[in-house]
């Protein structure tokens, strides 16, 4: 794909073809990002837009940035987004119904005006010359050119931004860190709790899910010897999510006690 992008970047017509295919797709994907309900879908669409932008970068002789875009954005940042999405889970904020009255029309009107004026301004702005192109600047290679600039003219911002990065990493740790509110119980304490607790029923550990039932999945509660289900055999988070299945589902209506005699 990269080789293709590089090639279409060289000549006008292929680039145009690529642009007119990928460009509308990117816009549609971006719009869809706003309209889909699930945040995970939004993230996938976002990743698509970013990959398209990476192609655009490469097509415009910004090979290094294109690669960085894929690696850093699509690879790292979007994965971080997905990771947090999984951590935080699904909740009512995924709903698309507007709760603040009148906000949506205002936003859309303002955005239409903003975009329209922007496009209109761009349309009226004239450069007065053709694009110069980067073949001269990239004579020694795009990475070399950027590296040269980074460590000569932009070395001071580069250093500052490195400090910012370190600060951000530390800040994220500080923000996400949560000190324990109680002392971590020792193994001895846990043992005491188990045997001196209210009952000895769980002294040997909780029943494992599924195993003694007629289904061996983790989301089905085990059956106790008297035939009743044991809800505490299922993981608490599955219960909380409502993903626990009823053990009755797998009840056999009639148990055949007769073993077919071997002939």
């Amino acid at each position: 794909m990269m080789q293709l992008a590089l090639e279409v970047g060289q000549t006008a017509t292929p680039e145009a073809v690529m642009f007119w295919i990928l460009g509308p797709l990117a816009v549609v994907a971006a719009l869809a990002m706003l309209l889909v309900k699930k945040a995970v879908h939004s993230a996938i669409l976002m990743a698509f837009v970013m990959v398209v932008l990476a192609v655009f970068y490469i097509a415009q002789d910004a090979v290094f940035l294109g690669i960085v875009q894929v690696v850093v954005y699509t690879g790292a940042v979007m994965m971080l987004f997905l990771f947090i999405l999984m951590l935080v889970g699904v909740d009512s904020s995924d709903s698309l119904t507007e709760t603040i009255k009148g906000l949506r029309p205002i936003a859309i009107t303002a955005a239409l005006g903003f975009g329209g004026l922007m496009v209109s301004l761009l349309g009226r702005a004239t450069l007065g010359r053709d694009a110069v192109g980067l073949s001269a600047a990239n004579a020694d290679g795009n990475v070399e050119g950027i590296g040269y600039l980074l460590f000569s003219r932009f070395v001071w911002p580069f250093e500052v931004i490195s400090a910012l990065l370190v600060t951000a990493a530390l800040g994220a740790m500080v923000l996400a860190h949560q000190p324990r509110s109680s002392k971590k119980s020792t193994q001895r304490q846990q043992s005491i709790n188990r045997f001196r607790g209210e009952s000895l029923a769980t002294a040997a550990g909780l029943p494992a899910p599924g195993v003694y039932a007629r289904h061996n999945a983790v989301d089905v509660p085990a059956l106790l010897p008297d035939g009743t289900p044991a809800p505490n055999s299922v993981n608490a988070s599955l219960k909380a999510r409502g993903d626990m299945l009823d053990s009755n589902t797998f009840d056999l209506k009639k148990i055949s006690t007769q073993v077919e005699e071997e002939k």
């Binding site: 603040i100 906000l103 205002i106 936003a107 903003f114 004026l117 922007m118 301004l121």
Partner: peptide, 22 residues
């Protein structure tokens, strides 16, 4: 979000001013 909407309106006003000036 309503603050963000205000920022958007502000940006619109800015662009509109530039548009008028240009």
């Amino acid at each position: 979000r309503s603050y963000a909407a205000l920022i958007l309106i502000g940006a619109l006003a800015l662009i509109a001013a530039i548009w008028v000036v240009v």
